[in-house]
């Protein structure tokens, strides 16, 4: 069994690159800083109200949310140059004439950027020790959360690689990925809100759950809160959906386990964009017959 050559090379060079090391440090500093601020504020309040270890689960939620946000910001920066960067460096043709299939090239690129993300996330794990010290969250829950974050990163990564294939310049593909991810995170929220108000204006009644369920299916934020709901017993996602109507039957299940739907949507998005990337990286795609 041979390791994907692109992955092997990327790993070799990125471990040699001090910028990668710097980025990981910066990432850890961000998360640690977030934890620090939370603890500081908490200590301050504990003078007045007494220290409540139950607050530590909120630290968990905040740390995870920061990870999620940072991962969504970092992934495009890492992955959106993967193909266009080779093109700019004039190494892409040399890669395309080899026996590596277009799919292996794309996968090698995706996995190598995911490897770096994984490294960043693992580097922050010691910070989570604080949460475990006070209890309230189990290790399997943390692992599940990390899995969800990585899946989301994978989704962002495959979109990045797709844009990297179709745009000649890395800068443009990075901008495009941020636009799409921004659209997924905030655009879909805005769209559901607009749907709600316009529906009310037209019919003066609740619009029902189906449209918002579909609109938010790829929203990483909603998926994240659904995971948090499942782990901490909160009701963020249900509360939001309740605005749109009463849930019954299958919508009830979907709303309670929205992260499952979200994860499935992520998988679908990943498959779609990887297939598109594989198609577009092929120089002789418009095969004539």
């Amino acid at each position: 069994m041979m390791m994907n050559p692109v992955l092997r090379r990327e790993m070799r060079t990125s471990l040699r690159n001090w910028r990668v090391f710097g980025a990981i440090m910066l990432y850890v500093l961000f998360v640690a800083g977030g934890a620090g601020i939370f603890l500081y504020v908490n200590m301050f309040e504990s003078y007045n109200y007494g220290f409540d270890p139950r607050n530590m689960v909120y630290l968990y939620a905040i740390l995870c949310a920061m990870q999620m946000g940072l991962v969504l910001i970092t992934t495009p920066a890492l992955a959106a140059g993967s193909i266009s960067g080779e093109r700019e460096r004039q190494t892409l043709d040399l890669l395309l004439v080899t026996k590596m299939s277009q799919f292996s090239i794309v996968i090698g690129k995706l996995v190598s950027s995911m490897g770096l993300i994984l490294l960043m996330v693992i580097a922050t794990l010691p910070i989570f020790a604080v949460v475990f010290y006070f209890g309230g969250v189990t290790l399997p829950a943390l692992l599940g959360m990390i899995g969800f974050i990585l899946l989301t990163a994978c989704m962002a990564g495959s979109i990045s690689i797709f844009f990297s294939c179709i745009f000649k310049r890395t800068v443009i593909s990075i901008v495009m990925v941020y636009l799409v991810i921004g659209g997924l995170c905030f655009g879909t929220l805005l769209a559901t809100a607009l749907y709600y108000t316009s529906y009310w204006n037209l019919y003066q009644k609740d619009p029902g759950l189906i449209v918002p369920i579909l609109l938010l299916v790829g929203n990483p934020g909603v998926g994240f809160f659904s995971v948090i709901d499942g782990q901490l017993g909160t009701n963020f996602v249900e509360t939001v959906f309740r605005i749109y109507g009463t849930q019954n039957g299958w919508t009830n299940w979907v709303v309670k386990n929205y992260w499952v739907v979200n994860a499935a949507a992520n998988v679908a998005i990943i498959c779609f964009f990887l297939a598109m990337a594989t198609y577009f990286v092929n120089p002789i795609k418009g095969k004539r017959k």
Partner: peptide, 8 residues
């Protein structure tokens, strides 16, 4: 080299 499609 297979890096460009021919028109015909």
């Amino acid at each position: 080299a297979g890096l460009l499609p021919a028109t015909s």
